[in-house]
């Protein structure tokens, strides 16, 4: 296994969009190491067949008629948003930042 160090932990945090304060980094390094020691046990198992299982239920194709069902109103969609601008959800500027 590659070394789970401080840099790696900060990289994973950035992928997960989590912020880790400076004084928490060492704690995370230790905890993730403890967890990964356990996770690494699956490397020990020898399995002959190559088949994989993604879902325990039978996957099947489902065809539906193209009919109008229930839908949400604008008020309902906006109801839980924190920032609104008229009838829109307001977000932080993403371009030209």
């Amino acid at each position: 296994m590659e070394n789970l160090d401080r840099e790696k932990v900060l990289h994973v945090a950035s992928l997960a969009k989590l912020r880790i304060e400076e004084d928490e980094v060492e704690k995370y390094v230790k905890e993730l190491k403890d967890l990964m020691d356990e996770v690494n046990r699956i490397q020990e198992v020898e399995i002959e067949d190559e088949e994989i299982l993604i879902s325990p239920s039978e996957n099947r194709n489902v065809y539906k008629d193209d009919t109008v069902g229930s839908m949400l109103t604008r008020e309902e969609i906006l109801k839980n948003a924190n920032k609104k601008y008229g009838s829109y959800i307001a977000v932080t500027r993403a371009l030209n930042d």
Binding site: V39, I42, V45, I47, D49, E50, E51, I52, L53
Partner: peptide, 15 residues
């Protein structure tokens, strides 16, 4: 590949 794919194979095996 190291973890997830191996896990999917192990899961199939346990089933």
């Amino acid at each position: 590949k190291t973890y997830y794919y191996k896990a999917l194979r192990l899961r199939h095996n346990i089933v």
